[in-house]
Each structure stands twice: as structure tokens, then as C-alpha cells.
Design a protein around this nucleic acid. Structure first.
Lengths: 275, 275
DNA sequence: GGAGCGCTGTACCGTATGTTACGTATTTTG
DNA sequence: CAAAATACGTAACATACGGTACAGCGCTCC
């Protein structure tokens, strides 16, 4: 079975004429970067003419050059998605069935935070901490517990934190209370829920500051969101994993808490007194 | 020092207008693949117009789009050359405040799973999968969302799954329905809630099979529990972290699902038909 | 050694791509 | 609340890119 273009080339390089073989060798030499550049650059690097490159690509079975490039990109994307899990985590002590799940989850978290800057988290935390308006949280079918989790914590350290639960009609009515000064935190991963999208759109129209927790494919709500947190969700299971988003949520909770403490919020001091 | 385009974006995303921010978020979400495609595809994926994409790359300091793409390609090439760099993220590129939190969380998970045998998880999963009785789930003040999360999933793949919510009196009444054949999943971490302990004790007396998710100091409920999952909760934050327990819960959900599929559960097949 | 075949490059073409100008909408500021 | 500034998209534009026709060259095989 041939799964990569590199293998495909290795398989057919024997049957190629001299010029195309040079093209093949050049591509293999710095695989796959040259293939992502233009035909002209490729041909120059290989020391052949442009048509030879195109004939080379055609021989590999591609209809045209862009199709060939897309294929290379897909391959790269797949490679980046699963960044050689083996090479990373210490050769799991448990050889059993749980390990793959844990390994994938750990990797998801690293990957999620890699694409998430301190700056971005700090911005969101700051927005949540500045008590100008209200904070609303809502989630989808499986992610609503995350919204609840976050709401439960935030509600302790600041007033006006509301988790939107129950029927769609229930929270839609709450839109009246929302305005420019308010923040709406939404959790939405595949399969994205229409009701949430509609809700987000309406809130957006009212000028609500939307913070979206979603997966790497981005819920359509990203259109309306001021801040988007894209977490990795793929695990070897029938279900998607929300663990990475959960950790981001906890991080955010911690950051907001620290922020409020730094601001010397009266509420925090009073609360410590109550314990 | 900014070395990658991703960091560059993270640094400036705050100063970008809405449209360009969408472009930035789209790129980050599936970094860097979208950036290698055409402006038209990029703009479509981000839901903005082509000029916005170009303004976005211009703001990042590139003269034109091809230059931006070349830069991305160089970055990719460097990454592919030395996959080691990818893996050793630990020398945290984020010198900021999130890393310690993430590191601690990852370590908590490893530590939690180290003390958790496959056997133990398999036993619990088996107990949950064998449909002799009902499954009840409940949690404490901050962990109840975990109970909800697990209940939401289990309820999809099997009947008689109940999340106990609301007032204490509410779920205490449900005790009448519980018996030897039933399973009660409890989440309880510091500070342990008396109400939960009392509830667990009563359930135990009725012969209910108790599965306890708790922290490393063990809730008093451990006395009555048939299975105890002790997760690490310590993180550099004002709050305890439930992330490790969350991951265990997801693992368990996955295991139960697999088990039921293996059993060829009628319900699973019917459900796939309903989609 | 000559005829035939196949490979390769030059030159040209059509088009898809990146780019720019401008008008409208939206937000910000006084 | 008005006016200015900024941001965004539509549409027209230019270029450079991929694609193709064709001619020359070398190679192979009679």
C-alpha cells in the first residue's frame, strides 16, 4: 500500500526518463518543501525546464500541479496533526488500553497551548476581570458542563456571573439583559449546534463581547467571537475530548482570580474573611 | 524574541481589527496549512474578503502574500529538519504565566494515571457496561459539572443513566430507587461536602456499588466506595484542578463505549441508524 | 550508419491569482 | 449626537503562474 507521495515516487522513479528523475531526486532531497513552491522554482532547483516538472507530476498520476501541491499539503497536515507521539512521551509504562488515550490527551493539551499565547489568555482574563458588565456562560450538549464548571468558579470571585441553562427559549430571553459591556463565554465543538450559533449571532448584534471555546475546526460562531480558543479534541475514542478546553478553562479561571486579587478586589478580601 | 509567525500573530492579534483577527484565528487554528493555500481559499475559510487577508499579512510586516508564504514554508522546513525542536517544548517558549499551570496539570495527569492500573479502569468500565441496574452520578460544588459531563455521554449509549441535581432533599429521595444492582458515581474533592458523605453512606447501606472520583487525600466517602480514583489536583493557582479527574472520566467513557460496542449492544446499533 | 522514436526545452497562451482603488458601512472621538 | 477616522468588501486590474504546441536533439534499434 502506498500512502505517501514519497513512496509513490520511490516506486516509479525507475521508470522515469532522466529529466523527470532529476525532478524526483530533487523533490526527495528536500521533501516536500520544493513541491510547495512554484513550478518555475522547482524546475530551477532541479535544473530542468518547467514542462518536465509538469510531466513528472502527471506521471505520478496527478491531473495538474495544484492538485499535486494539495496532496503534499494534506500529507504535511496529517504529519503535523500527529507529531510523532512516539517520539515524545516516555515509552508508556502501562502497555495497556488507557495509555493511547492519555498520550493523545496530553499531546492535545500541548498542541492547544502551543497555539495559545499568554497574551491572548491575559487579554481574555483582563476582560473577564474588569467588572463593567455581566458574564454569561453557555455550552453545547456535551460542553455545557464546562460552562457550568467555569461559572461555578467565577461566580465565587465576582458578582453577575450567570450560567445559561435549560431550554433554548429560556436563554434567548436573557438576551434582553445583554449589551456592549457584557461578556458571553460559549463552548461549542462539533457537531456545532444551530441553536448556539443563532444565539451567538443575536448576542453579537447586541454588541456582546463573545469568547468562544471550540475545536480546531472552529465553530461557525468564530465569526462573531472577539476571542477564539481552538482546542484539540481528537483522541482514540468514539467521542471527542474536551479535556484540552477544560484545562484552558481552568487556566483562565486561575488568571482571572489572580487578576482580581492583584486589583485588590474588595470582594476577594471579604470572602477570605468569611471562611 | 519572536521567532515564529505564530508568535508574531499572538503578539499583535490584540491590535487587529475584527476582520483581520478572524484571519489570524483561522490561521492559528490550523496552523500553518491555510496560509499555504491561495488568498481566495484563506479568505473563504476565515469568512472575510481577500483584501482583508492581504491587509492581515501586510500588518504582520510582509511586503506581499508570496513573501508571507515563503516565510511559513521556511518555518515548516526548519521544523521538519529537526523534529526534536517540536518535541522539546518544555524549555517553555512562553516564559509567561500559563506554562507553570499547564506543566503542573500535565504532571498531575501522568501521576494520576501512574497510580491507576488498566485493570482498575477495566473493572469499573465493565461494571458500568453490564446493564443490570441503573447508573447515578453526582458531584460536589465544583465537581458536579464532571458528573454532568459523564452522565451526558453515558446516557447516550445506555438507558437508565441519571444525573442527580438540585437540592439535597431531591436526590436523597432517589435513594429509594437504588439497590445492589445499581452504580453510583460520586465526584468529591476538597473541601469534602458533608451532604455528599451522608448521601454516600446511605447509598452504601443499601448495597449500592459506589465509584468515587476524589483527590489524592481521599474524601471520607472512600470508606464506602467500591472503587476509588484518586486524582492529583495541585496546581499553581488559588483553586484545585479537576483536570486529571476529567481525563479519567473521559477515559472511562471511552472504555465503556468500546465495551458496549464489543458486546454488540442493540442500542448502539440502533443509535447509529438514527443518525 | 541511417531511420525512427522518445525525451527535452523554447516560446507562447489563457487564466487564476495577488493586488489596488474606491465606495460604503462601522466604529470612535470630540 | 455629529463628524471624522477607520475598517471592510466589491469590482476592476496586472502579473505571474501553470499549461501546451512544437521543434530540436539524442538515443536506440534495425
Amino acid at each position: 500500500m502506498i500512502s505517501s507521495i514519497a513512496e509513490l515516487i520511490a516506486d516509479r522513479i525507475g521508470t522515469m526518463p532522466a529529466g523527470e528523475r532529476r525532478a524526483a531526486q530533487t523533490l526527495i532531497a528536500s521533501y516536500p518543501m520544493i513541491g510547495l513552491k512554484t513550478v518555475a522554482e522547482f524546475s530551477a532547483a532541479a535544473g530542468v525546464s518547467s514542462p518536465t516538472i509538469l510531466r513528472f507530476v502527471a506521471r505520478l498520476g496527478f491531473q495538474n500541479y495544484p492538485e499535486f501541491q494539495s496532496s503534499l499539503q494534506d500529507e504535511l497536515a496529517a504529519q503535523l496533526q500527529s507529531p510523532a507521539i512516539r517520539t515524545l512521551n516516555p515509552p508508556s509504562p502501562n502497555g495497556g488500553t488507557v495509555s493511547p488515550m492519555l498520550e493523545a490527551t496530553l499531546e492535545n493539551m500541548r498542541e492547544t497551548f502551543r497555539h495559545l499565547s499568554d497574551r491572548q489568555l491575559a487579554d481574555i482574563a483582563a476582560r473577564l476581570a474588569e467588572r463593567r458588565g455581566k458574564t454569561f456562560l453557555i455550552g453545547g450538549r456535551f460542553t455545557d458542563p464546562l460552562a457550568r464548571y467555569m461559572a461555578a468558579h467565577l461566580a465565587v470571585i465576582q458578582p453577575d456571573v450567570f450560567h445559561l441553562a435549560g431550554q433554548e427559549s429560556m436563554w434567548r430571553d436573557r438576551l434582553i439583559d445583554m449589551g456592549k459591556r457584557d461578556v458571553l463565554v460559549i463552548f461549542d465543538i462539533r457537531r456545532y449546534q444551530d441553536s448556539l450559533v443563532r444565539f451567538a449571532e443575536k448576542a453579537h448584534q447586541r454588541g456582546v463581547h463573545i469568547v468562544l471555546f471550540t475545536d480546531q475546526w472552529l465553530s461557525p460562531i468564530a465569526r462573531f467571537a472577539r476571542h477564539v480558543i481552538a482546542g484539540r479534541t481528537a483522541v482514540p475514542s468514539a467521542w471527542d475530548s474536551s479535556a484540552a478546553l477544560f484545562v484552558v478553562a481552568e487556566t483562565l479561571i486561575g488568571a482571572v482570580t489572580r487578576q482580581l486579587e492583584a486589583d485588590g478586589a474588595r470582594r476577594i478580601r471579604e470572602m477570605e474573611g468569611l471562611r
